[in-house]
């Protein structure tokens, strides 16, 4: 699976490690993110908290707003396409987007099929809630995996659940004997060869990032300590009372995620975090993480 194209895709994901990727909706926010030390920005029309509030069908961002953001920053620019919407992905590739997020935050275009990502030159990131889902997306060509969490909730509990599920299933895979591998792969709905890869290397074949509910420096530190290699912050920055300082603080806490003094320092003198949502208060059919499979 490590052909040249795939190596290049994973290579860019490697460059983003240890950093923070921030959702932005206009050039001013993109600049704030870059100045704060973001390693990439995700260009989207509305941040997840607003998508949730606004309702309706959420689609790929307009090419104009993507170009406007590409024009003002030198760090990589990512953008989202709807699950299964390969035509949106083709447009994003034409725009020279550096990474496409086939994202459950947008309204899915296909109930059954995700994009066959191997046929694109641009790398993709996809969300997952467990190891089976992660390996299915990697089989389709995802060069980076992230937890889904619950986007726009400001609540870290789902990202933690998804990260812990992936890592505990990886530990389980490593304890399998030869005879158990195929049955395990069947049960989690993942290709046998990818399960074998995890069993032998103890790692996913692509970098593993975290998204969905990160709102504070300590949230970022928590996800990094749980094994995330980079964090995505969606609504957490531009729904807070002081985006520029919060953005910086989350970057600092991610760099020094193991150093509680540094995370403490980053957490001081920040205004209010975004208001959060209790997951139980979100109606079942409005949970974004249930989109895709």
């Amino acid at each position: 699976m490590l052909n040249k194209e795939f190596k290049l895709k994973i290579g860019l994901a490697e460059m983003l490690k240890g950093g923070v990727i921030m959702d932005v909706t206009n050039p001013e926010q993109a600049k704030i993110a870059e100045d704060a030390g973001a390693v990439a920005v995700m260009a989207l029309e509305r941040i997840p908290a607003d998508i949730r509030a606004y309702g309706g069908v959420a689609r790929m961002s307009s090419p104009k707003m993507i170009r406007d953001i590409q024009a003002v920053v030198s760090i990589p620019v990512m953008a989202k396409c709807r699950i299964g919407h390969f035509a949106e992905a083709q447009v994003l590739q034409t725009l020279g987007i550096d990474f496409i997020d086939e994202s459950e935050v947008l309204t899915p275009a296909d109930d059954f099929n995700h994009v066959w990502k191997h046929s694109f030159k641009v790398p993709f990131v996809c969300g997952c809630r467990n190891l089976g889902e992660a390996l299915r997306r990697i089989a389709e060509g995802a060069a980076m995996i992230r937890t889904k969490g619950e986007a726009g909730s400001g609540n870290i509990v789902e990202a933690v659940r998804h990260m812990r599920t992936v890592t505990s299933e990886m530990k389980k895979v490593q304890s399998l004997d030869d005879h158990e591998v195929v049955a395990f792969a069947k049960n989690i709905g993942a290709p046998v060869e990818l399960v074998q890869y995890v069993r032998e290397s103890g790692k996913l074949p692509v970098p593993n990032f975290s998204a969905g509910g990160i709102a504070t420096p300590a949230d970022a530190s928590l996800m990094m300590q749980l094994g995330a290699e980079t964090v995505f912050v969606g609504s957490g920055i531009f729904k807070s009372s002081d985006p520029a300082n919060r953005a910086k603080a989350i970057v600092d806490a991610t760099t020094h995620f193991e150093d509680a003094d540094a995370v403490c320092k980053a957490s001081e003198a920040l205004g209010d975090a975004m208001p959060g949502l209790e997951i139980g208060s979100i109606p079942e059919d409005e949970l974004l993480q249930k989109r895709g499979w």
Binding site: E14, M15, L16, K17, G18, G19, E34, D35, A36, G37, A38, V39, A40, S74, I75, P76, K248, V251, D252, T255
Partner: peptide, 14 residues
């Protein structure tokens, strides 16, 4: 190493 040079320099100065 490799990474984002903008991010490196911001952090180096900070």
């Amino acid at each position: 190493p490799g990474g984002e040079s903008t991010t490196f320099l911001k952090l180096i100065d900070r």
